[in-house]
Structures are given as structure tokens and as C-alpha cells.
Write a protein that binds this DNA or RNA. Sequence first.
DNA 1: CTATAATATATAGAACATCTATATATGTCA
DNA 2: TGACATATATAGATGTTCTATATATTATAG
Lengths: 113, 113
Amino acid sequence: MIDKSLLTGSTTMLILKLLDETNMYGYQMIEELREKSNNTFELKAGTLYPLLHILEQKKMLTSYEETADNTRVRKYYSITKTGRKHLQEKKEEWKIYTAAVNNLLGGASFGTI
Amino acid sequence: MIDKSLLTGSTTMLILKLLDETNMYGYQMIEELREKSNNTFELKAGTLYPLLHILEQKKMLTSYEETADNTRVRKYYSITKTGRKHLQEKKEEWKIYTAAVNNLLGGASFGTI
DNA sequence: CTATAATATATAGAACATCTATATATGTCA
DNA sequence: TGACATATATAGATGTTCTATATATTATAG
């Protein structure tokens, strides 16, 4: 099984990216991430919910409750302007970092194309 | 300034990669990583030295002391077979993870291995 | 119709990686 | 000779994610 420790820290960016597309509730984010990553990401509920609370405190998200057909109450989250700004920054960092790692992993081997 | 938290967990892989090319001592690894990444990675001594001890405990590295011209003693590290195996695994994980993140972010993979 | 699984959110405590701060010692350069 | 770079090391703090647990509702299998 794949060791998740390689990329800890990218969770916030991924959550913001999901919400940049459409409003979602927590449980849905876990499913979306799993599906869209072909089971590579299996974000745990115990990780997500506290993180959502923190992102709301930091004004990156706002939330509202909505009752589905049945009566099950879901807590939907929406990205704010601050959240979008943060997402852009994280995406830039991501580009720089992965480029640096890939350069290190692939570089220094003269003679290969 | 760039937030390092995006990629915590990749340090071990990078150390193993450096040592896969040539034996090195700790202080040298910090410099190499900084130079080869255009100052993107600034690994701290307080992070590196304990990590090297752990990797040696796990039989991924072996060490030997060597005195330079002057008399300054340096502790050189060498990667083991176990370490190379671990490096290969981490590189595979790295590919899978970055591909998954890039896919989620909107396609377009940055950099190549 | 009832037990179990899935849906949905939440928190406490543990684990782990990295950081800052600090300590020690030697070598180099102004 | 004082400051700075080299070189290694550890303690304690911080931050992120995990496991375990709790609660409540809805859907489904037996």
C-alpha cells in the first residue's frame, strides 16, 4: 500500500480546489478525492472535519446547512475570495516544489535524454 | 516565502537520491539540496542529523568517519541495498501521487522524471 | 421488521516530520 | 582575536495526519 507521508501538506490545497469547482459537504469531499484520484487519496474523516473548521476560522471557507430530500442534514462549504487567493498561492508553490524534486530525481545523470 | 509544508515527507527520498549518486556527509547534503533546487529546499541541520541516525538504524545507510586535509572530521554516509530499494519505492509513490494531484488540479503535469 | 452497513459530522489523543533553539568544537579570514 | 563558516548533535515546540471513539440518521439485507 502506498505511503501517504510523501505529500502531507497538500490536503488543504486539494480541498480548496474541489470547492473552487462547486460547493460540497465534508463526506462528499472524501468520496470525490478518492474517485478523482483512482483511490490514491483516502482522506480520513478525522483529518477532514477539524481541517474544515480551521479553514472556516481562517475565512477561506464559509458554511451553511442544507437538508436533503430525506431530512438528512448536510453541512455545505463554499470557498471565499481569501480561499481562492490561498489556492492560487498553493498551486504556485506546488509547481515550484514538484519541479525542484523532479529536477533532483532526474538530474545529474548525464547521457540520458 | 514558500511554505515547505506542501511536501513534508519527501526529505528521506531526496537524501537517498543524493547518496545514490555519491557518498556524502550531512553538511554537504544540505548544501547540495539547496544548490540543486535553486534555493527551494533549505533543509535544516536539526531536521537532517536525527533523520540520518534513523535511516542508519533502519539499515538504509551506513556511515564512516573521514578526516579532511585539515583535521576536520566528517561523517560520511553511504546508501545500502535496502536504501536503494526504498528509494525506488519512494520514487514510484512520488510519480503516482504527483500525477494524482496534477490530475485533480486540472491536468498538465509539471516537470518530468 | 430488525440487524447491519452506509451516510454524516465531530473530538481526543497518538504518531510522525520538521522546525527553532541551543550546544559544542574546529577552521578560516579580516 | 573576533566573527563567521564548517560540522555534528539533541531537546522541545509546532503542525499535519492518523486511529479510535462517539453520535445520529437512512438504506439495505436477511
